[in-house]
Amino acid sequence: NQASVVANQLIPISTALTLVMMRSEVVTPVGIPAEDIPRLVSMTVNRAVPLGTTLMPDMVKGYA
């Protein structure tokens, strides 16, 4: 089972991601792979991401 990136807090729309905002967790459905966390830092989300939500590729500008 692959770990995915999960929001560690509410991430408001257009917020630049930082390490403290994300954690890795094995979830269903599978989202962005946890090993991509370093790549996600400073990318922005294009929607509000509630606490505990799995980050999907279409939620992060420039990721997909």
Rank of each mutant, 00 (worst) to 15 (best):
A48C: 11
A16C: 08
P29D: 05
Q9V: 13
A64S: 10
V26I: 12
P12K: 07
L51T: 14
S4V: 01
S24Q: 14
M22T: 00
V30P: 10
Q2V: 13
R23M: 05
R39K: 14
L40F: 02
S42D: 13
D36G: 07
I11E: 00
S24H: 12
P38Y: 08
T44A: 10
R39G: 09
V6D: 01
V49F: 02
M43S: 07
R23N: 09
P12N: 11
I13T: 15
R39N: 08
V30A: 10
L40E: 00
P33V: 08
V45C: 06
K61S: 09
V41T: 05
R23V: 07
A34M: 10
L55R: 01
A48G: 09
T15L: 05
L55F: 15
M43W: 06
Q9H: 11
N1C: 06
N46H: 12
E25Y: 08
M56A: 06
T15G: 04
L51A: 14
V41Y: 04
V41P: 02
M21W: 03
P57W: 06
P50H: 10
M43Y: 14
E35Q: 14
D58K: 08
Y63H: 05
N46W: 06
I32C: 04
N1D: 15
I11D: 02
P57E: 07
E25C: 07
A34Y: 07
R47E: 12
V20G: 14
A34S: 13
S14K: 11
A34P: 07
S4N: 02
M56R: 12
T18P: 00
S4K: 01
E25G: 08
A64G: 11
G52C: 04
T53I: 10
A3P: 14
M21D: 04
V41N: 03
P38A: 12
I37A: 07
R47V: 15
V26W: 08
I11S: 02
V5L: 03
V30Q: 11
I32T: 01
V27C: 06
V60K: 01
L40S: 00
L55A: 02
P38C: 15
M56W: 05
P50A: 12
A3T: 13
V41C: 06
V27G: 03
S14E: 13
